[in-house]
Simulated assay, not measured.
Amino acid sequence: MKNIKVKYNLLALFIFFTTILFGQDVIEAAKSTKNKSYASLDLNFISNAVFMGRKDSIAAPYLNPSITYHHKSGFYGTGSFSYLTQKDQNRIDLYLLTVGIDYSNTKFYVDVSASKYFFNDESYNVISQVESDISANLKYNLNLFNISLMASNYFSSNNTSDFFLSTAISHDFVSTNNKFQFSPTIGVHFGSQNFYEAYYVKKQTQNSGTGTGTQTGDGTGTGTGEGDGDGTGTGTGTGTQTGEGDGNGTGTGTGTGEGDGNGTGTSTGSSKASYTAKDLMSVDDETTTITELVINESEKFKTMAIDLKLPFWYITKSFTYSFIPVISFPQSETLVINGDTIEKENLKSTFYFIAGISYKFN
């Protein structure tokens, strides 16, 4: 049942949870389809997006449909999208494409893959700045228990990358008809936190928002103009006359009149200004300034999380049903440096679960 492996490899990449073990019965079942090509449809729900023990303060529940084609040679491709079901956030938050190759026998399973992430600009997922990853997964069955090792490199949009190493150990309990299985598992995850710093910087920018302001001032102006007008006036004058005729005289007088005129002038008045968060980073000291945010020792390789999980599977001819409850205990609290402010990372254990159904086209 190789589709189970592909399904949970996708989960490991997509829902930010590595080292899901499938157990001896799954590997043996996969051998039965080793020389067959197939396609499968999957629908999974995760109650919260948790990666390396880290999460946003707002829960990020996802509904994740996907389609996979697996060639008998071991090459496969998967396409999926992640629909965010959080109240007032309903949207497709992520598109994910994965290509890879795997191989298995009764004792051994290996998978190498590469994934490309397309996050929504409004995503608040802790790996929303991750653009791609390459991963290698190795599992080995020791009869009494299974061991797993996954190595991954994640590339972020700020030109940084993180190397992760995840280890796990599990034991399988399988029904006599091989249709039901549960596998208690403990996993330990190691890595760096450049992805987390990129997430924090994005979140700070989103929270800063945009604003508009107005300023007013008094202004003076000068101008010149021309105009025409009619008026009436009175005056007195003197003249001389000889004989009969008309005479002319001169006089002075005053009058009033109205007229229209046009003029030009200059003045200063009110103005408006609008700034975005990006603008505020470069304006003068009298405005609010976005300061640099740094995760202390984000590039340092350290223990990130310890996970306890209890995966359940029920398998029929074409359908696989799964339920995986997880408790994640984040490790290695670090310092968040924001300008002159230094805060210790507030890490808390998280419970979340994954529920899914898969249909395989034989």
Rank of each mutant, 00 (worst) to 15 (best):
G79R: 14
E292T: 13
K272Q: 10
K7E: 08
S161E: 06
H70E: 10
D340N: 15
Y124F: 07
S123V: 06
F312L: 15
E333W: 04
A60R: 02
Q204I: 15
S156Y: 09
T106Y: 08
I357P: 01
Q241V: 12
D218K: 08
K203S: 09
E244H: 08
N194S: 03
S318A: 12
F190Y: 08
N262M: 14
D111H: 04
N125Y: 02
F75T: 03
D93R: 03
F155I: 13
K272S: 11
D284G: 03
Q241G: 06
S270V: 13
K360E: 13
G77S: 15
Y95W: 10
T176F: 04
K360P: 00
Q204W: 11
E297F: 06
Q24P: 03
I337H: 00
N90H: 15
D93T: 06
Y38G: 08
Y103W: 06
D230Y: 12
S148V: 02
N105W: 10
K317C: 04
G213Y: 07
P330E: 12
V50W: 00
V326T: 14
T78S: 07
D279Y: 13
T214R: 02
K36Q: 09
V99C: 02
A29R: 07
Y199T: 08
P311V: 15
Y314T: 05
I147Q: 00
M281T: 12
F351S: 05
A60L: 05
N3H: 15
D121I: 04
T212H: 03
S170C: 12
F301L: 09
Q89C: 02
G23V: 10
S123T: 11
T185E: 07
G263P: 02
T242W: 09
D88N: 14
S318E: 14
I58Q: 09
